[in-house]
């Protein structure tokens, strides 16, 4: 029997028909397309989770510096702040945000990460899932299940739209990561598959149109902070969904809208470093400083 699904509607049909969670349907699909055993598949995802955990740990504790020197140390800064101060957004939210930043800083310093779905958006999903796991005493098994929920959402977006900043802007890249994280949070917290898709929809709607304008073309700034806001977006959208708030526009239509918006974003604002923050006087000055002279080794 074909275990594949093409879009959100298909996925919900499968979940309803077989009374299953999204993560269960996604694992069945993975077994179906790869021919591998459930244990093997779960084991590999567990390995990914371990890499995610160590990236967060490194970024929160160590003094990180990126290859260009542009970013690093902000995750640690935020951790110290929420550990010693009463914060506006609360410790849980700040921990998720700092964890997301931590992974992106490790990425920018040539450390090991798991693309989720890309390297430039690799902080959001681990940041959110691992922090929530700690705050709600979820075990690794439950977080791994969340990663499969997230993978299902990412797969649908990749298949029907794009997760590449160069193609669809930051809304596609960190937007997809945040939508994946929101859906995973909803299921991990006991929400229904329908609620998970509402969470994913709201997440994307919240940042629809966000451009990709990295300074000097590097996966550093504003990427670290866009991962921060992506984590916060996932938390807020997941809470809204768990409260029973629905997205007026269904998930598949939101994904389609995101794709169309991405296509109409000018090229200068899709990872070319020709527009937005990259084209500001300060952005240009930084670019010159890093790449000013074309030297050979």
């Amino acid at each position: 029997m074909n275990k594949d699904f093409m879009n959100g509607n298909d996925l919900l049909g499968r979940c309803r028909g077989e009374a299953k969670k999204i993560w269960e349907v996604m694992i069945e699909r993975e077994i179906y397309i790869s021919g591998k055993s459930k244990e093997e598949i779960m084991g590999y995802m567990k390995g990914n989770l371990e890499i995610m955990k160590s990236a967060i740990k490194r970024g929160l504790q160590e003094d990180i510096k990126s290859v260009s020197g542009l970013v690093g140390g902000d995750a640690k800064r935020l951790r110290k702040y929420y550990e010693t101060n009463k914060t506006l957004a609360g410790e849980q939210m700040n921990k998720a945000v700092a964890s997301a930043m931590a992974v992106l800083e490790v990425n920018a310093s040539m450390g090991q990460i798991v693309a989720a779905p890309t390297a430039g958006s690799s902080g959001i999903l681990p940041g959110v899932l691992i922090s929530a796991g700690q705050d709600f005493n979820l075990d690794d098994e439950q977080i791994v299940q969340g990663l499969f929920t997230a993978a299902a959402i990412g797969y649908i977006i990749t298949r029907n739209a794009t997760v590449a900043g160069a193609e669809g802007g930051c809304q596609a890249e960190t937007g997809a990561a945040a939508a994946m994280a929101a859906a995973a949070l909803v299921e991990m917290m006991g929400g229904t598959p329908e609620q998970a898709l509402h969470g994913a929809s709201m997440t994307i709607k919240n940042i629809l149109g966000l451009v990709c304008d990295p300074i000097a073309g590097l996966v550093e700034a504003p990427c670290v902070k866009r991962n921060a806001i992506g984590a916060a977006n996932a938390y807020i959208s997941a809470d809204m969904a768990l409260a029973g708030i629905q997205s007026i526009i269904p998930f598949d239509e939101v994904v389609d809208a995101m794709y169309k918006v991405g296509k109409s974003i000018p090229c200068a604002l899709r990872e070319t470093a020709l527009g937005g923050l990259a084209a500001t006087p300060t952005g240009k000055k930084i670019q010159e400083k890093i790449f000013g002279s074309k030297t050979q080794n």
């Binding site: 996604m26 995802m45 920018a108 450390g111 693309a115 390297a119 990749t158 996966v219």
Partner: peptide, 22 residues
């Protein structure tokens, strides 16, 4: 392409860029 869950959550890589580094 028949995207695997590990095309979405993966690859495991050294940053910063899947295209420019991995």
């Amino acid at each position: 392409k028949n995207y695997s869950a590990f095309d979405i959550i993966g690859p495991r890589m050294i940053g910063p860029s899947s295209s420019h580094t991995a």
